[in-house]
Design a protein around this nucleic acid. Structure first.
Length: 451
DNA sequence: TTCACAACCGAGCCTAGTAG
DNA sequence: CTACTAGGCTCGGTTGTGAA
């Protein structure tokens, strides 16, 4: 059946059929057999519906069957009067069902990278297991924990299935056994998993020198030459740093200096090995130049790009990609001069603290929006984070405060300044206060709506 | 028949744009 | 400054499918 938004007449047809059905079902049985009615369509035209609904058997008189009868009759009627959209009814407002953006259409539009999807699923499982292991290792009584106690950790680790099933599912990780004396079910790490954890900690110890190089490179990229230790802590898993990297690396090696408890600095940045200042991508570019005979113009700012399986390349995409690959940007180890980000091809490209920033323009009704949000994208390290909605988010206490101050009829701008006074680190903007007020109002409305 | 996995689907949250 | 809404995103539950 065609979708409604493509067939506007179907909307009218169905609405008239439903109207006819709602009258028909209230009629006594004797009048139901031969049913005649007049329905009025959206344009005001009266449509005669004569329909024989027979035989009156309960099985055949269900809603769908009767509606089918009406629809076929109305189709004939419509054909006869030739109701069409046009000057006759063009002043009336028609609202078509807009194409729904559902998970289905989203999935259809998306190019799935199954490898990455699987990787993320497995990573999620691994994190769950590791957080369970972390909780298990905090127990003092021994190398095993009662499953009953573990079941209380479901909320802590974010487990949404019963713990018993989860432990049984990963038998190679968890060893479930009855306690020899108490006979309650206990759990300990399987020997295979213990070996894996030991192997991982050995690898981390052996990687110490690599980790030193890695942190050095990060500090070289940093515009100020310093890094927050908390930032390193947040990415320690990705960087492969040990838990005690502050003591075992930052304090141990004389290349680093702790400015204070939370900031680390690189000593004698200029005396560093020149090889360290070469990004891996430069090696790839050199290879491209020599192996593919590409010019410097083509490869100077290019990056290796891999598309997920099944990625559909649209017409003109390759050309745009080629243009984008040529856009200049400040390289991470270049400190001299400030580069002005180009806006050629509707795409901006710049390096922000060592990360590549790519901004594509939003499109509306097929036209590219000409507005450039920030023409000077290349800038020094952001001192304020208002541009990032995540850091602007109000805490629960602050949201509560917005609610209380709104009830006291305080102006949003004053609410904002009050919050900022209480918490000088707060980087929220007036927009966030409006949104918070809107949210509170919606919550109140939902509470008063009779269900 | 059971189990694991992939695909599907919709609810809900949040941000930001826009008209008035 | 408010009200409304589009769009992006995540999450959790359900359904379909194929292998053991």
């Amino acid at each position: 059946m065609p979708s409604l938004h493509l067939m506007p007449t179907t909307v009218q047809l169905l609405s008239i059929a439903f109207a006819a059905y709602s009258i028909w079902k209230t009629l006594p049985s004797s009048e139901k057999i031969e049913y005649a009615a007049k329905a009025v369509d959206n344009s005001g035209t009266v449509v005669d519906i004569k329909c024989k609904v027979y035989p009156i058997l309960s099985l055949q008189c269900n809603m769908v069957w009767v509606l089918q009868q009406f629809i076929s009759e109305i189709q004939i009627a419509y054909h006869n009067i030739r109701l069409q959209f046009g000057p006759f009814n063009f002043t009336t407002q028609h609202r078509w069902k807009k194409p729904a953006v559902t998970a289905k259409t989203r999935l259809e539009d998306r190019t799935r990278d199954l490898k990455l999807d699987n990787l993320m699923v497995n990573l999620h499982k691994l994190k769950l297991i590791l957080s369970l292991h972390g909780l298990m290792s905090t127990r003092r009584r021994g190398p095993f924990v009662s499953v009953q106690i573990m079941s209380r950790w479901s909320n802590i680790v974010g487990l949404n299935v019963p713990i018993g099933g989860f432990l049984r599912k990963y038998r190679h990780v968890f060893d479930v056994f009855p306690h020899p004396i108490k006979w309650n079910i206990c759990c300990k790490l399987a020997s295979k998993m213990k070996l894996l954890l030991q192997e991982e900690s050995d690898v981390i110890i052996n990687m110490e020198l690599d980790n030193v190089q890695r942190i050095k490179k990060l500090l070289m990229i940093s515009v100020t030459g310093t890094l927050h230790i908390h930032a390193l802590r947040l990415t320690k898993q990705e960087l492969g740093l040990p838990d005690d990297f502050r003591e075992s690396i930052l304090e141990k090696y004389s290349d680093f200096e702790l400015v204070n408890l939370e900031i680390v600095r690189l000593i004698d940045k200029d005396d560093l090995d020149e090889d360290l200042k070469v990004a891996e991508v430069e090696k790839w570019r050199e290879k491209e130049c020599t192996e593919k005979w590409l010019g410097e113009f083509e490869t100077k700012y290019a990056f290796p790009i891999n598309f997920p399986t099944g990625f559909k390349i649209k017409a003109g995409f390759k050309g745009k990609l080629k243009d984008w690959q040529r856009l200049a940007y400040s390289k991470p180890y270049e400190k001299e001069g400030v580069f002005r980000a180009s806006t050629r091809g509707g795409i901006e490209r710049a390096v922000d603290n060592g990360y590549i920033v790519v901004t594509t323009r939003s499109k509306k009704k097929g036209d590219v929006v000409k507005k450039v949000r920030n023409d000077e994208h290349n800038h020094e390290a952001a001192q304020h984070l208002e541009g990032h909605p995540f850091v602007r988010r109000l805490s629960q206490d602050e949201q509560k405060m917005v609610g209380q101050l709104t009830e006291q009829h305080m102006d949003p701008c004053n609410i904002l300044s009050t919050i900022k006074k209480q918490n000088p680190d707060n980087v929220s903007v007036i927009r966030d206060i409006y949104n918070a007020q809107q949210k509170i109002k919606n919550e109140k409305k939902a509470g008063t709506t009779p269900m």
